[in-house]
Design a protein around this nucleic acid. Structure first.
Lengths: 349, 349
DNA sequence: GAACATCATTGAATCGTTTATATGCTTGAT
DNA sequence: ATCAAGCATATAAACGATTCAATGATGTTC
């Protein structure tokens, strides 16, 4: 592969001149510029970014580290981050941890070795920051995305999960539902805990007791939605409504509904996080807490780059992004008066 | 950030020794090894992979370039590639072209500058190889994945699309369906064309005429499935069955079914590529041509690395991976004899 | 005990850039 | 004609590692 030296020789100029032509660092006469450019073309020369990075001590590479690229929530985030990164002259790469902290550790170490300028991280762990500590100390910029880890000195872009859940559950209550079950995400993750909190707050506001038996701990995966969905519908005392804490689990719930021939909202109301089921052949359309995923990615990348370039120097802060509640048919009040149904249920229990 | 020099100073050895300890290049006495290791720990030292890459002229970085990370088919491929890459000591990064050839061009150029050792590519274009030519000439290993571009000198790992489509349509015919519509993928892409070919071959084998009006050109996206699905079902003369060329379009078709209250297989049979709808709340389960996506990614990464390391030197070749047909309920013969139904339909038109 | 082989350790060149500094050429003022 | 200023270009020293060749210490053999 041709180097800058060969280009310089062929154009009969110094390598400094070649560099200046490429980077536009300083004026070069039209004649030399011309000669350099033809030489570059003829040699199929591509500047060695590795060498450049070594010298200037920055790579203009960013990395996004995700727990599960299979979850459709993340690709949108990637797009957002990728677009801003590209616009601002950075290159974004993506890596998967598979929700395994060990893998995350190895990946972060590798990224540090490759001297990426910054990392966008949705950590697999909600608690362990040992591997991030050294990385931050070493000067790699870090922005947490979607999830943060308590105690870490890094910016974060998070959804206002409490608010999203609270408004959604509030809406369900307002529609007349009283006995509302929740299928939570993993409670090891902040996201999972916050959404549960929003649910609890909404119930308390309305003086509805939070019943332990109505809280089903899932893990944000399809199967846990399916299992809990099935379990709920097979109980003798069904709730009026279910609030599901992410889109993937909702697909599982809908599958359970399908199998059990449950109709929504006639038999039970349903609301969910993430607008995944829009593409799904399910009727009716679901009331949903929508996350602005693209914007979250874009925003996080923006902050990361601002940090790298020194436009932000203040202490790390957390940006909370607002979710949007889209009300659709799935939370319409059930045909029977709520009070009656509710009483019946308590009587039976 | 600490360098090898600082480590050497602190351990009071030469930098060569530090390097030898880190890489295990040659024997170093236990005492020195110990000293070096503590120095590394104390300084929170992480070897500069950039500098190493410059010297040894390889980065141990691989890149996967994809048209649309939002399509659930790709994340699985990434996983496969990522796992083998990691096992063999490489790091895999991912980049998105958004199906735009211009973006693909920029990304490939950037990857070349970063001197990645190899690229796994599912090209956005089925025809344009101008940007790949120079890259291959420059010595970047390239393996095409899922799609290849005619005329390119690169290995490829592709699904045996013709066979997958043929076997599936053959199965539908055997189940008694005669009038089978196809919703194709983009015919600009090889994948799209090959699947159509498989469909045609199966029909010809069975002496069923290929009717132009039964071939609906989609683009592998949700919306085209929805539109064509709706269109098919609103025709006065409906086919017996639909064969859909990918999973995302199938979700669109199912959505159309849902809206029009179509039952499957009672009203119409359905078969598809990609096992996406398994997670979907659709009854019945769909007959599907399953692609071994994980294995395709793994296989492609394996070939790429073998090329890079010189284990393969023969001319580029194309590996065709076999799909699996999973027969489920959606292609059961309709309740009414096919001939009758077919006649009724024609009578009406 | 001398000569030599063996082995751990080190010095220094190198990878392909960027960039500060030096150099040399024009040009205009005196 | 001389000199300073201004500009284009070139020279050479980094950046942080790897690795060949050289050095020196130790052990073996006769």
């Amino acid at each position: 592969m041709a180097t800058i030296i060969e280009v310089a020789k062929r154009a009969d100029v110094s390598i400094a001149t070649v560099s200046n032509v490429i980077r536009g660092t300083r004026r070069v006469s039209p004649q030399l510029t011309e000669r350099v450019q033809t030489a570059i073309r003829e040699l199929n020369y591509s500047p060695n970014e590795i060498a450049r990075s070594l010298k200037v001590r920055q790579t203009r590479m960013l990395a996004m580290v995700l727990p599960d690229i299979t979850n459709p929530f993340f690709p949108e985030i990637i797009r957002g981050a990728e677009d801003t990164a590209f616009e601002r002259g950075y290159f974004l790469m993506t890596a998967n941890t598979d929700e395994q902290i060990g893998r995350e550790r190895r990946i972060v170490a590798a990224l540090r070795s490759y001297r990426v300028d910054g990392v966008l991280l949705a950590s697999a762990s909600g608690t362990d920051i040992s591997h991030l500590k050294g990385t931050i100390d070493a000067g790699v910029a870090l922005v947490c995305l979607d999830r943060t880890v308590p105690g870490i000195r890094a910016d974060a872009v998070l959804l206002d999960n409490v608010r999203g859940a609270r408004e959604c559950v509030r809406h369900m209550i307002q529609k007349g539902h009283r006995s509302i079950a929740i299928i939570t995400g993993s409670l090891d993750l902040q996201t999972g805990r916050e959404r549960l909190r929003g649910y609890e707050e909404a119930l308390r506001e309305a003086d509805i007791p939070v019943e332990r038996s109505r809280i089903l701990e899932g893990d944000f995966r399809h199967d846990s939605g399916y299992r809990h969905g099935k379990h709920i519908m097979e109980q003798s005392v069904r709730p009026d409504a279910i609030f599901v804490c992410n889109g993937v689990m909702t697909l599982g719930v809908l599958k359970a509904f399908e199998e059990l021939n449950i109709r929504c909202p006639e038999d039970i109301a349903l609301a969910t996080f993430d607008d995944l089921a829009v593409d799904s052949p399910f009727h009716p359309q679901l009331t949903t807490v929508v996350q602005p995923s693209y914007e979250m990615g874009a925003r996080a990348a923006g902050i990361l780059i601002d940090r790298i370039e020194g436009h932000i120097t203040k202490a790390p802060s957390i940006v909370r992004v607002a979710p949007t509640l889209i009300v659709r048919e799935s939370t319409e009040a059930p045909p029977h008066p709520v009070a009656k149904r509710s009483r019946r249920a308590s009587a039976r229990s």
